[in-house]
Amino acid sequence: MPKLPSGLANWNSLAQTLGDDCLRISSYNLHRCIGRDGQQDAARVAKVIDELGCNVIGLQEVDNRFDGGHASLQLDYLAERTGMEAIAGHTMVRHEGNYGNGLLTRHPVLNVRQHDFSYRTREPRGALDVEVDVAGVAVRVIVTHLGLRPAERRFQVNRLLKLLHDAPMAQPVVVLGDINEWLPLGRPLRWMNGMFGRAPAERSFPAWAPLFALDRVWVRPRHNLLAFTTHRSAVTRQASDHLPVKALIATGMPGRTKG
């Protein structure tokens, strides 16, 4: 089995051998489906989701609004195009529509919670907290998008860690999203790595010339994380200002593989 420098197995080769008890999951900041060309094109984003080969997609900057009679219901559209179930985690609710996080899943949904991480007068932020059934195992997936200022991120990560402090250690937990943190020694990253183990970092922003590893996936227990990569293709470099990242995660149900 080929290995990456991080010690994680190669995503593509491993994905072909693992069974349905392995969680294939992605985090993707859609940037309201506005691409490098300045055009809002949800169909282009749907092509990216098809390319990913994942059964759960955590989304950020999803725009569901009615503007002058024109509907831009991105989450519903993407669910219909990809054949997945959509869960909304809006952080802004306005008369013209909603904006924020979202989740697409092919796994059955067991529970949905939403958490407010808003900080003072800054842009509202939150976390979408969803339990999905992966081959009989309840996996908790938390999708978030942290703030632009350091004080915001410290506040929001503290809220997140308190939220998970009493979570059962036996239950697999995945935290993913755009964390807006580019300093490896920044406190939010150190705090998250302290609870979950160090998350792999691959540059994902900006999509056309990636410099910063803003999009992350943390897994508890850490050894359940089997592979992680940034998904690069011609369409991902055009569809949003972020590249999607994806991971393969064991769910604690040994003995199931294809073939």
Rank of each mutant, 00 (worst) to 15 (best):
P2L: 14
L8N: 01
L8E: 07
A9Y: 13
W11P: 05
Q16H: 06
T17V: 13
L18S: 04
G19M: 13
D21V: 12
C22S: 08
L23G: 05
Y28V: 11
C33H: 04
I34W: 00
G35E: 03
D41S: 06
V48Y: 00
D50I: 06
E51P: 08
I57S: 06
G58C: 11
L59S: 04
Q60M: 10
N64D: 15
N64Q: 07
D67R: 15
A71P: 00
L73P: 01
T82R: 05
E85H: 13
A86D: 00
I87S: 02
I87A: 05
H90F: 15
H90T: 14
M92I: 15
R94V: 07
R94K: 14
G97I: 11
N98W: 15
G100Y: 04
G102P: 08
G102Q: 09
L110D: 00
R113H: 12
R113E: 12
Q114G: 07
Q114L: 09
D116E: 04
S118V: 09
R120G: 03
R120T: 10
T121W: 03
P124N: 03
R125A: 09
E131K: 11
A135K: 01
V137F: 00
A138M: 03
R140Q: 12
V141H: 01
T144E: 06
L148N: 02
P150K: 00
R153P: 10
Q156A: 09
V157P: 00
R159I: 06
R159F: 04
R159K: 14
P168N: 03
A170L: 06
V174E: 05
D178S: 11
D178G: 12
E181I: 01
W182M: 07
W182P: 05
L183A: 15
P188N: 05
P188Q: 06
N193D: 15
N193Y: 04
G197M: 11
G197C: 08
P200Q: 13
P200I: 11
R203C: 12
S204A: 13
P206N: 08
A209Y: 15
P210F: 07
L211N: 05
L211E: 05
T229P: 09
T230V: 15
H231M: 13
A234V: 15
H242R: 10
P244Q: 08
P244E: 02
K246E: 10
A247S: 14
A247Y: 03
T257I: 11
T257M: 12
K258Q: 12
